[in-house]
């Protein structure tokens, strides 16, 4: 196997990349100038040493405590529990939420070998127990495993006195009913709300 083939093989392991795209990228790199390649290689190499998990919430950060946790103007009485650090980016992009986060690192699924103790759950309980938290928003995905994890957390936090809420599910705003899948539509019908003016 040549160096180029090995590179293509490794690139095609990246999410969303098939062999064709991997080949395109490999040839692009082959023709790119040395400085670009060196810079890119350096960034990949340094990724794991310069980025770590936030000591408080588990988000990715270059400092010990992430920018969200260390921001005093955010509402520190509101915690949003998410499955993965990527979910923080998604929620942040809405500019609707000014609380803080907690990354669980996955969802409970015994079939896949993920048990509650494998997730960042104890730390969430500890944070809630410190007393400043008023509400925990459970933002796990609306899947069977996401629901299991949310219910598990709700039970665990039920004696803590904080309000526990779950993200609403339903049809996407600005979307077309025609394109909503039937499960989503059925959930929306069950969770319909009264309208008045």
């Amino acid at each position: 196997m040549t160096v180029l083939e090995r590179l293509i093989q490794n690139l095609s392991r990246l999410p969303g990349l098939g062999r064709k795209s991997a080949t395109r990228i490999a040839y692009f790199l082959l023709n790119a100038d040395d400085a670009f390649n060196k810079n890119l290689a350096g960034q990949i190499e340094g990724l794991k040493s310069s980025i770590r998990r936030c000591r408080v919430c588990g988000n990715y950060t270059e400092t010990e405590i992430c920018g969200i946790c260390s921001n005093p103007s955010r509402d520190h009485s509101l915690i949003c529990a998410v499955e993965q650090p990527q979910d923080i980016l998604t929620i942040e992009a809405t500019h609707e939420y000014d609380g803080i986060f907690h990354v669980l690192g996955g969802v409970i699924s015994p079939i896949d070998g993920v048990r509650p103790e494998d997730l960042n759950i104890q730390e969430l309980v500890r944070r809630v127990g410190q007393g400043d938290i008023k509400e925990v928003i459970l933002a796990t995905n609306p899947t069977v495993e996401g629901d299991t994890t949310a219910l598990y957390l709700a039970k665990l936090l039920s004696s803590s006195g904080v309000t526990v809420t779950r993200l609403a599910t339903g049809i996407p705003a600005g979307g077309d009913l025609e394109y909503a899948d039937r499960t989503t539509l059925a959930r929306s019908l069950r969770g319909r709300t009264p309208l008045s003016y």
Binding site: I108, P110, R115, V144, D147, T148, L151, Y152
Partner: peptide, 13 residues
């Protein structure tokens, strides 16, 4: 695995 804590949750679901 006799996970009582999880069984409580799965029962509800």
């Amino acid at each position: 695995e006799s996970r009582e804590d999880l069984l409580d949750i799965y029962d509800v679901q």
